[in-house]
Design a protein around this nucleic acid. Structure first.
Length: 573
DNA sequence: GCCGTTTTCGGCCCGACTGTTTTCAGTCG
């Protein structure tokens, strides 16, 4: 079984929890947590480094000891040290730490006085009213534990970005209506445009005496108030989404925005830079000898550590600080840079609108070109086209192209990759098209080697231009299929083909780290909407956000080029 | 357990809120 970065992350997190329960040196605990975070955010698979016998201690926060442990996990899939911790007294208590409000000290107190080891036992003790009798616990802690146990059952993990957008918009509007509010902005992973968000972090500044927190907890969608202070509050909305509000003085606006936008790894790295210069950074500003010297804007904060402004999408501590220091930050792509959309469907297969309607809508957006790419025959449920229908379809597009002004419609197809890697339509008909997109739509669970070979063979077809949604994942629904992405990217590059960043917000496939990997390999990306209707064209903005998180610039994106350049890129030899 | 422009030892980010306290420990982000 292949070991993934997330497997190592989980193991290190569990070790950290168990060590913390044993009162280990807190900095040793932190070392495991830091390493877990480092590995989780790597843009490549760590097992590759191990197999190539690379020096793991070059990774931040990884020393000799943890490097050994990583190698052991890659080799055996498990860690003896963890097994040892698990076999000791209280070796299963870390699961209790998953309950918000229960940390190592409280879990240990429950274990020592009531013998609680599992969530089941915790629930029983709470129902029998035993928790409140333990030193350090009371009625409220007991009620809170019961509530969190119930919430754990319902909790479905992180919220997809578009859902978070829909929940956030009316809340922000509500908050802005309160008189005395000067500024409101969503920070956190939402501002960094992550594909899913764990919670919403809302930052506000108000005039003196404005009680925004009380107003906030009375929002009609609030289901439960977790905490409520003067400057800070946490609630759970009826949808289950957690929202944190922080009220910050206007003079600290930039510092608060910086602090609560994160990521944590980025913030810590910046704070360390500041410490080296004898400065202290917190959510209220940059301080020198307790005197605030910056904090009103984020630009000011970065300037204090001799860096230019870094946009939120890059703040993941994946090299942006070094790039900023060297003046090599990428000039990230924006929606305005897009010249056209190369993947969409019409009524001819499973779309809702006609070719002309899609073209006119795209022209409204200022696009110079689009590609119409219906499904091929194998996708029966989408009424995919066979060679004969496709021939007539090509004729129809030619006719419309002659009738319509101001936009060029490229003749394309989203052809299925069959089990053996051959394509669902003969080369003779593919040859007649302007653009050929290939895609996997079935047999998602082939072994990694076979799936990789299947896709590589498709990319080697002389008429294929783009691999659509390269990992097939659907966020919250379907895991990516197992492939060797590096090999696929290498093959694409060698064959003058490109990979797609599919902008459908539940796909966003390629993800950010793969986008960055492609860029570093010199492989260009097509950011496509995969629209099935006129409205679907708007999804491209989600893809742009993901592309920005993946460091992509105009030069890295084929549909950020004009028609002439695009045609040159699509010409394969 | 990691790390080094205070470098091989002695540091390691820090402020807000809660609940149970009676002045603060624990937890969280």
């Amino acid at each position: 079984m292949p070991v993934h970065n997330t497997d190592i992350e989980e193991i290190f997190k569990e070790v950290a929890d168990l060590l913390e329960l044993q009162d280990a040196n807190p900095f040793r605990v932190r070392a495991y947590r830091n390493a877990a975070r480092t590995i989780a955010s790597l843009p490549y698979s760590i097992i590759d480094l191990v197999e190539k016998d690379k020096d793991l201690t070059e990774l931040p926060g990884i020393g000799e000891d943890l490097a050994d442990k990583i190698r052991e996990i890659c080799r055996t899939g498990t860690l003896k040290f963890l097994k040892k911790l698990e076999s000791e007294e209280g070796g299963s208590l870390h699961t209790l730490m998953g309950i918000p409000g229960l940390g190592p000290k409280k879990v240990k107190a429950l274990h020592q006085t009531l013998g609680i080891e599992t969530l089941q036992e915790l629930a029983e003790a709470a129902q029998q009213g035993k928790i409140g009798t333990v030193q350090g616990f009371g009625e409220k802690s007991e009620a809170n534990i019961l509530k969190e146990l119930n919430r754990l059952k319902e909790r479905s993990g992180r919220t997809p970005y578009p859902v978070a957008c829909q929940l956030a918009a009316p809340l922000i509007k509500y908050l802005k209506q309160k008189s005395g509010v000067k500024q409101i902005q969503i920070a956190g992973s939402f501002r960094r445009a992550k594909e899913t968000v764990g919670d919403l972090d809302i930052l506000a500044s108000c005039t003196r005496g404005t009680d925004l927190v009380t107003y906030f907890v009375h929002y009609e969608e609030v289901d439960d108030v977790i905490s409520e202070g003067k400057s800070r509050s946490t609630v759970i909305l009826k949808s289950g989404l957690q929202v944190d509000l922080r009220v910050i003085p206007a003079v600290s606006w930039g510092a608060g925005l910086f602090y609560f936008t994160g990521s944590k790894a980025h913030n810590i790295a910046i704070r360390k830079l500041a410490l080296k210069k004898g400065l202290k950074v917190n959510e209220y500003g940059v301080f020198k000898n307790d005197k605030r010297i910056a904090g009103k804007s984020e630009e000011e904060m970065y300037a204090q550590v001799d860096l230019p402004y870094i946009v939120p999408e890059l703040r993941e501590n994946r090299g942006e600080i070094k790039a900023a220091a060297e003046g090599k930050l990428p000039k990230l792509i924006t929606l305005d840079d897009i010249h056209g959309d190369l993947h969409m469907h019409t009524k001819k297969s499973d779309g809702q609108h006609s070719i002309s309607q899609m073209a006119e809508a795209a022209r409204e957006k200022g696009y110079e070109y689009i590609a119409i790419t219906e499904h091929s025959q194998h996708v029966r449920i989408a009424r995919g086209l066979d060679a004969k229908t496709l021939e007539r379809h090509i004729e129809e597009i030619n006719t419309i192209n002659n009738q319509i002004d101001g936009i060029e419609i490229l003749k394309g197809i989203e052809v299925d990759i069959l089990e053996d890697g051959s394509l669902d339509l003969p080369d003779e008909i593919l040859k007649a098209l302007d653009i050929v997109i290939c895609a996997v739509h079935y047999l998602f669970d082939l072994p990694e080697e076979q799936q990789t070979r299947r896709i590589i063979k498709a990319l080697e077809n002389p008429f294929v231009n783009i691999l659509a949604h390269p990992t097939g994942r659907v966020i919250g629904e379907r895991d990516p299929y197992q492939v060797d992405m590096k090999e696929i990217m290498k093959t694409a590059k060698e064959n003058n083909a490109f990979l797609e960043l599919n902008s459908y917000p539940y796909r966003l496939d390629l993800n950010d780290t793969y986008c960055k990997m492609a860029k570093e390999m010199g492989l260009k990306i097509a950011i496509n909407s995969d629209a099935h209707s006129i409205d679907g064209l708007d999804n491209l903005s989600f893809g742009i956000q993901q592309a920005r998180r993946g460091w992509l610039e105009v030069k890295d994106v084929i549909n950020a080029q004009n028609l002439e350049s695009l045609k040159r890129l699509l010409r394969k030899r």
